[in-house]
């Protein structure tokens, strides 16, 4: 296990290096000038040139690349020219809301999706199966911002139960925190939940036809034990994969949802930084997201062995 883990972690490095290179190139190919964004439309050519020199924007691109990579190797993601602080600090500040939102959305998704998917599989072909799966299809098809806007209309504008937008950190009270996050979490969770529910159903359908399920029934076990103990654990590997992927996607910032609900998360940070041409922030954030993505996948791979004893990493 230890050897496998080391191998996997080391193999992350080339992946991240490729991401860093592509990340840097794409951003620097994008037209736009940070200096003119910072100084505004009124700035003279002279002022602009001065600021460019100050920011190091006039240096050749390869020098800037190696400076940035050199910093990365020392754990320095760079400097935000617009916010005037280290990129790591900017990401750290925005990570909290995104993490909270992601975890809440994922919990909502899993809590509903797995039981509904299991029920649909157990009652394959009945009205219940068809109703659940129609809703799941709707959940995948409807954009989360549309769901978000409708939730705002209903719960904030009409009923006045919840705040329309904004964010309160946990330090301002747990209930307050939830009040602000519940609507965006639901609108994100619906889509992820729909995916998980469909995967749960199809994976369960496959497992329910297995001989060991018949063995479990022949033992006299109650239906819920057969379903949740014997079937679900066998069906869980593909479900876990979908959960891992959706979690990784959400960590990357739900750009649109964070914008609709005005949540200062990673998604908003990226959008704002792109508008400001704040190169190093964009580069740093993209790299951070890539790292989170591969790490979550690694965790998911390790969980496979926990769920299914036949999965072993050390051999081969």
């Amino acid at each position: 296990m230890g050897g496998y883990l080391l191998k996997r972690v080391v193999s992350l490095l080339p992946v991240l290096l490729v991401v860093a290179v592509v990340d840097f190139i794409i951003i620097h190919l994008t037209p736009g000038d940070p200096a003119s964004v910072i100084l505004g439309a009124q700035a003279t050519e002279e002022e602009l040139a001065k600021l460019r020199e100050q920011l190091g924007l006039n240096l050749p691109i390869y020098i800037r690349f190696f400076e940035w990579i050199g910093g990365l190797l020392q754990g320095d993601l760079g400097w935000s020219i617009f916010m005037d602080k280290p990129v790591t600090e900017a990401i750290w500040e925005h990570l909290g809301p995104t993490l909270s939102l992601t975890i809440m959305a994922e919990i909502i998704a899993i809590l509903f999706a797995i039981p509904l998917g299991v029920m649909a599989a157990n009652r394959r072909g009945t009205w219940m199966d068809q109703t659940f799966m129609t809703f799941a299809l709707l959940g995948i098809s409807l954009p989360s911002f549309w769901i978000g806007l409708n939730l705002i209309l209903l719960f904030a504008v009409q009923l006045n139960w919840l705040p329309a937008a904004g964010y309160q950190p946990i330090s301002n009270g747990l209930l307050n925190h939830f009040k602000y996050l519940i609507m965006p979490a639901i609108s994100l969770g619906i889509m992820q939940g729909a995916l998980i529910a469909r995967m749960t159903r199809s994976s369960m359908l496959e497992v329910l036809n297995e001989n060991y399920i018949r063995t479990a029934e022949a033992k006299g076990l109650k239906m819920w034990l057969v379903t949740y103990k014997h079937a679900l654990r066998n069906a869980f590997i593909p479900i876990l994969t979908v959960i891992g992927l959706s979690f990784a996607t959400l960590i990357g910032g739900a750009v649109v949802t964070e914008t609709v609900f005005n949540i200062p998360g990673i998604g908003k940070l990226i959008v704002n930084s792109v508008l400001r041409r704040d190169y190093e922030v964009i580069q740093g954030t993209v790299l951070m997201i890539a790292a989170a993505y591969v790490l979550i996948n690694l965790i998911v791979d390790l969980l496979y062995a926990y769920i299914d004893p036949r999965v072993r990493y050390d051999k081969s």
Partner: peptide, 9 residues
């Protein structure tokens, strides 16, 4: 089929 009649997990 004893291969498939026991729960693998």
């Amino acid at each position: 089929d004893p291969m498939s009649s026991l729960n693998p997990v």
